[in-house]
Simulated assay, not measured.
Amino acid sequence: MTRVLIALTSHSELGDTGRSTGFYVSEAAEPWAVFTDSGFDVDLVSVAGGRPPLDGLNADDPIQQKFLAAVDLDHTPTAGELDASSYDAILFAGGHGTMWDFPNDEALASLAAAIYERGGVVAAVCHGPSALVNLKLTDGSYLVDGKNVAGFTNAEEEAVGLTDVVPFLLADALTARGAIHHPAANFTPQTITDGRLVTGQNPQSAESTARAVVEVIRQA
């Protein structure tokens, strides 16, 4: 049985704005639906474990409601509690919270690197690629170095008015690690597959990114 892991942020504060953040529910729910419909087992992991904070919840969205009813958000494990050999892929869901805790979670980075190095897929959508900024392989190279990637763009960050709130600009940080970042028009679907690395630009890219992961797994 193919098993896929969806990684979620545990960070709930949007900088100093007084606003809350967390994982963007659609960016976990839509991939979960694609994976489960494909017959995959899906587990969750979060930076701090326990119940991660939610953002962007649409109570009228049937996929989100089905996801929330099916998963156990109250008891997510941390990366250190999981074994990379159990998983064929990991997908980092977005949400602005990821910008604060994904890049510095060494256990999560190690787990993803191990999944990748044993032939698995690493995927991320929207701000989820923040997890890739400091992700190194065992040879010391950055996973994204020389890879074509998508991720929330500088223009999109400006459009939502958070350029000066986030700790760094995601597209710039990925480029600094050697990635080749491909921006599409604001809030249009954009998914890029480069080998076993699959990245999506924004919430509109969550479903297509998950479908691309399924395709890579089935071609392996």
Rank of each mutant, 00 (worst) to 15 (best):
D139I: 10
T36D: 01
L68P: 13
S86A: 15
L73I: 15
A112P: 07
T36G: 04
L169P: 12
I90M: 08
G119E: 08
G56P: 01
T98M: 04
R196P: 13
P203Y: 14
G18H: 06
E81D: 14
G161R: 03
V71S: 12
Q64R: 07
N148C: 06
R177E: 09
N148V: 04
F187P: 01
Q219P: 15
S205C: 12
G161M: 03
F40K: 03
A210P: 12
L54Y: 07
A33K: 08
S12V: 12
L82H: 05
G146C: 01
P103L: 10
E13R: 14
E207V: 04
M99A: 13
I180Y: 11
L44G: 03
G50P: 05
T21A: 05
A79L: 10
S10N: 11
A112E: 12
A210M: 08
E158W: 02
V34N: 03
H127Q: 14
D37S: 13
A114Y: 13
Q65Y: 12
D16N: 14
A69H: 15
F102M: 05
G39I: 07
P189C: 00
E156I: 00
L132P: 03
A113T: 04
D105I: 08
Q190C: 11
V25A: 02
D101V: 08
S110K: 15
Y87L: 06
R211I: 07
A155F: 11
K147R: 09
L170S: 01
A89V: 05
N154E: 04
T17F: 15
S205V: 09
A48I: 09
S26K: 09
P52M: 06
P52C: 09
E117M: 06
K136L: 10
T188V: 06
P129C: 02
G95C: 03
F152G: 02
A220F: 14
G195F: 04
G95A: 04
G128S: 05
A210C: 14
V34L: 05
A113P: 05
I192P: 00
S86P: 15
D41Y: 13
A179N: 05
P183K: 01
T78K: 15
A109R: 09
R211A: 09
P52K: 08
F168K: 08
R51Q: 09
V198S: 00
V198E: 00
E30G: 07
A69I: 14
A212Q: 11
G195A: 06
V121S: 09
A212M: 10
S46N: 01
G178F: 03
Q219D: 15
D74N: 13
T163F: 14
